[in-house]
Design a protein around this nucleic acid. Structure first.
Length: 552
DNA sequence: TAACGAACTTAGGATTCGGCTG
DNA sequence: CAGCCGAATCCTAAGTTCGTTA
């Protein structure tokens, strides 16, 4: 494992950062450059590097940063540097912009050398031996210091994330293994030998005061087996889901408010693939919710809307502050229950005030061994893929056409799970380029049609072999061009439909890979077309296991 | 029984890579 | 042959779950 990177600050070193420029209100510092201590300068570089990001303009970010920065300053520095607004980071910023430009402009050989050095580090620190097998480690470096940037409206954005020292790190390995040496002059916080957990090293980060772990890569046997287990639990849910649904429908009429709330929440989790929604500590994280933590302000009830009855409009920020927005028609009983749950409550009150994820999961555990709220997401995602593949795949299609069907099935799952992405910066442009290609191809097709017609007109004598051959040639050309055009159109459709939808998350975490592998085998699509190298490594267990008859 | 702690999966954005094109 | 672009990879935050503690 790697830890202890060189500090990035340059004060007192020979790295040659030009002087930092400070303006302070008081004489004698007004407009004067200031030499910073090593620690202070390093933190200044963290801020300076982020100047291009919008969030450095946010007050919370600035306040958190400045507060933490001042804590690390010498008393002299604290005396001089009293206001963030009077600090000028632009020279430091430029220094790093130039540095990154310079790196990009490096000659090939130099880049090659850097790559080899990185590979050497990967080779030395990136693997471990588990049960006699050499396994790749997922994250073998401790996280470097910097400024914390949470997602969404995070109250801690801008806080200083401190450098991890060997003294912060716990090593977990076998008693009889070669225990990793701490860097020269340092020692580990602890070395333990716990084979009931999977992590190799851990430390506590200072922002949320939570543990971080060094763990194995998804390609490892250990992770693969866990992944397999996860899907097996979801498959067991398939066998009992109808009973469970009958049960929660019955519970919509339960005399116990607690149970009614649980039944409605479970219905949302099942139907809408919502996450469980644990309670979160206020002020520690961004304000996001899942099912059990929904508040009254997150839903609106429409007795009638757009020709449908009993429509629930959901609008809230979920994990990673991604917005969930959906209008969905529900059963009358659900609708009435929701009205009941909302009665006499403020917008900021919990919708399911009698419900916790613990209570919900206890119930689920009782319904099926190993069942928890998240299993519904896995189950519904995988079963949706299977059904969609069945519905959308046309065996007559060529590989490109089949892949479009696959992507559409994948997309249906991503939509269900609300996996979004921001529209790529280059989207509009690349769409335009594609459209230009399509237009050009259309023209070619038209020309080919005319040429074919001409060739057919010239074919007066059916025995004229040359003319006949010419017609055949033109026909072939036309057919080829038409196919190319079709392929481009397919591409454009696919691209447009994918604009704001992220397929990767469901592919990696929710879709039983055996479904996809079986589909590939059944329809003669090479597995490489749907899984890249990394994904094939992660799903090696499934590739070895699934044949074309696999059913989720 | 609520709060806390630990361990693990899931998640989107940022960065880097590598192949194509002008 | 650079420069661009999409794909792959990296990064680490943000969830879920379960066990423990006060």
């Amino acid at each position: 494992m790697r830890c202890l990177e060189t500090p990035e600050g340059t004060a007192g070193t020979s790295m040659g950062l030009s002087e930092t420029f400070w303006i302070s209100e008081e004489d004698p510092w007004q407009g004067k450059p200031l030499k910073l201590s090593l620690a202070t300068e390093e933190i200044a570089t963290f801020y300076a590097k982020m100047l291009d990001h919008e969030y450095t303009t946010k007050e919370i970010f600035q306040n958190n940063f400045f507060h933490d920065w001042r804590k690390e300053m010498t008393s002299e520095e604290q005396e001089i540097i009293q206001e963030l607004a009077k600090c000028d980071f632009s020279e430091i910023h430029k220094y790093f912009v130039d540095k990154s430009e310079a790196r990009k402009a490096l000659p090939k050989e130099e880049k090659q050398k850097l790559k080899e050095e990185a590979d050497k580090i990967q080779e030395e620190y990136g693997y471990c031996i588990l049960d006699g097998h050499r396994e790749k480690i997922g994250n073998f470096k401790t996280e470097p210091p910097g400024l914390f940037r949470g997602r969404g409206d995070h109250p801690k954005m801008g806080m200083l994330k401190k450098r991890i020292m060997p003294e912060d790190v716990v090593i977990n390995c076998s008693r009889d293994s070669k225990i990793p040496e701490p860097p020269e002059g340092h020692k580990w916080k602890e070395v333990r030998f716990d084979n009931t957990v999977t992590w190799l090293a851990s430390w506590t980060e200072n922002i949320q005061n939570t543990l971080k772990y060094i763990m194995l890569n998804p390609s490892s046997k250990l992770k693969g087996e866990k992944d397999w287990q996860k899907y097996e639990v979801a498959r067991r849910l398939k066998d009992v889901v109808h009973e469970i649904r009958a049960r929660y429908r019955a519970d919509w009429k339960s005399k116990e408010m607690k149970n009614r709330q649980r039944a409605v929440a479970l219905y949302f989790i099942d139907k809408l693939a919502l996450r469980a929604g644990n309670e979160k500590e206020e002020g520690e994280t961004a304000d996001t919710v899942g099912c059990c933590s929904l508040r009254v302000e997150h839903i609106r009830l429409h007795p009638r809307l757009d020709g449908q009855e009993h429509v629930v409009e959901l609008d809230f920020l979920g994990k990673d502050s991604i917005r969930y927005y959906n209008k969905v028609a529900v059963e009358k009983q659900v609708f009435k229950n929701l009205q009941l749950f909302m009665k006499n409550k403020d917008p900021s009150d919990d919708l399911f005030d009698r419900l916790t994820t613990t209570f919900l999961n206890k119930h689920l555990q009782h319904l099926m061994d190993g069942l928890t709220a998240k299993v519904f997401r896995t189950y519904n995602a995988s079963i949706t893929l299977q059904e969609q593949l069945k519905a959308l795949t046309n065996p007559e299609d060529n590989v490109a056409g089949k892949l479009l069907s696959y992507n559409r099935a994948n997309r249906a799952v991503a939509v269900l799970c609300n996996h979004q992405r921001s529209v790529p910066k280059t989207f509009a442009k690349s769409m335009e380029v594609l459209q230009t290609k399509i237009d050009a191809k259309k023209k070619q097709v038209e020309e080919a049609q005319q040429e074919l017609k001409k060739a057919e007109d010239e074919l007066e004598d059916p025995k004229d072999a040359k003319a006949k051959a010419n017609v055949e040639k033109k026909k072939k050309l036309l057919k080829r061009l038409e196919e190319q055009l079709a392929r481009l159109n397919v591409q454009a459709t696919d691209k447009e439909e994918n604009k704001q939808i992220a397929l990767g998350t469901s592919k990696l975490n929710y879709l039983d890979p055996r479904i996809s592998i079986a589909w590939c085998k059944k329809f003669g699509v090479p597995i490489e077309k749907i899984y890249n190298k990394t994904q094939r490594e992660k799903f090696a267990w499934a590739i070895a296991m699934a044949n074309e008859d696999f059913e989720f």
